[in-house]
């Protein structure tokens, strides 16, 4: 590995990291503004033009707050838990391709931090690791509401991870590869080659599971304010609380990007061959990726301010009695179809 290659990788890592953090800030802003709009309000609009600097003001506020460590908490784990949640959330984006290959300095540079041949499994592994942050935060706080929140989250995430995994399996069956690049190239061409149209049921299941995985409404039972005060992060304050928040939004960004990659052709623009268009193609593909992801991020917010929360038994019923059989059925159909046609 020569120096230039190392440099390119470093630049890519920094770029993706910065983009994710920036999007987190934007998402916090967008969440507040859009929720306000839906409720007929204006939302934060004072700090900076249109209130765009509000997240930065929030960040400064978090930094200035007293960092309270309640008596009776299990200190090492209490301190570790926010990091345990945030780090996997930020790592996940590494395998998602965000544009077609770029040619610079006579080199072919894929717009992706790491092209892992088990890309999807990597993402699944990291999302399943994120649970520890929640569960341990709940346990270490030594308080009843966080504990309940943590327990709920572990049960919920395990249930829905299964369904999400099964929905992904049907996509993997179609592409015959676990590499995200292969899944994207298999969706290239015209509109109908996108996986949403080939696998509408899988898409629906995946979308619902993703909302449960990211603890977003209507599945935000882990932090159900009315019942659990704040859920797993009740006892946290200051920057550690902010880390939980950032992790939640980082997870959302990855989830939206993954949805786009798996079902909406990733950076693909229909009817165009980006790879043969040089620089323009790269710019177009990145723009397409960003736009598609932005739509799903908007959908996250939109859904949150539309639907009420599930009851816990309803959540489990939906997960195990409806979504799981449907996902299995879908795999069965897909596999059967593939077996007959190939």
């Amino acid at each position: 590995m020569d120096f230039l290659a190392l440099l390119i990788i470093c630049v890519k890592v920094l770029l993706v990291f910065a983009a994710t953090m920036l999007t987190v800030l934007l998402m916090i802003y967008a969440e507040r503004r859009i929720s306000a709009f839906i409720q007929g309000r204006l939302g934060p609009n004072r700090v900076g033009p249109h209130g765009l600097l509000q997240p930065i003001a929030d960040g400064i506020k978090f930094l200035m707050k007293e960092d309270i460590i309640p008596a009776g908490v299990d200190k090492p784990i209490y301190l570790l838990a926010p990091a345990m949640l945030l780090i996997p959330a930020l790592m996940t984006f590494a395998v998602i391709p965000f544009g077609s290959d770029i040619t610079l300095f006579g080199r072919n540079i894929p717009l992706q931090v790491a092209d892992v041949n088990v890309g999807i499994l990597y993402i699944l592994a990291l999302t399943s690791i994120g649970v520890y942050g929640l569960v341990l935060a709940g346990w270490a706080s030594n308080s009843k509401y966080p504990l309940i929140g943590g327990l709920r989250s572990s049960a919920q995430l395990i249930s829905y991870e299964l369904t999400m995994g099964l929905a992904i399996v049907s996509i993997v069956l179609l592409s015959g590869s676990l590499r995200l690049n292969d899944i994207i190239s298999q969706q290239q061409g015209h509109f109908l080659s996108w996986n949403v149209f080939k696998q509408p049921l899988a898409f629906l299941i995946f979308l619902i599971a993703v909302y449960a995985e990211t603890n977003r409404l209507p599945f935000d039972l882990t932090e159900a304010e009315q019942e659990l005060v704040g859920g797993y992060h009740t006892e946290y304050s200051s920057m550690k609380f902010a880390m939980f928040y950032m992790a939640e939004y980082a997870n959302m960004i990855t989830a939206a990007a993954l949805t786009v990659t798996l079902f909406f052709g990733g950076w693909d623009l229909p009817f165009l061959n980006e790879t043969s268009m040089g620089m323009l193609g790269v710019v177009l593909s990145v723009a397409a990726f960003i736009l598609k992801t932005a739509f799903f991020l908007f959908l996250f917010i939109w859904v949150r301010w539309t639907f009420p929360r599930f009851r816990y038994d309803q959540l489990m019923n939906l997960g195990w009695k409806v979504m799981l059989p449907l996902a299995l059925f879908n795999i069965f159909i897909t596999a059967g179809y593939l077996a007959l046609t190939i």
């Binding site: 007929g40 309000r41 204006l42 939109w302 539309t306 639907f307």
Partner: peptide, 23 residues
């Protein structure tokens, strides 16, 4: 699903409505 979509449309309409906030 149809009911869910209906709900989403309702909130989307509200999104575009005139805001009632007084600055």
């Amino acid at each position: 699903i149809p009911a869910l979509v209906q709900g989403l449309l309702v909130t989307f309409k509200h999104l575009l409505r005139k805001k009632v906030t007084i600055q």
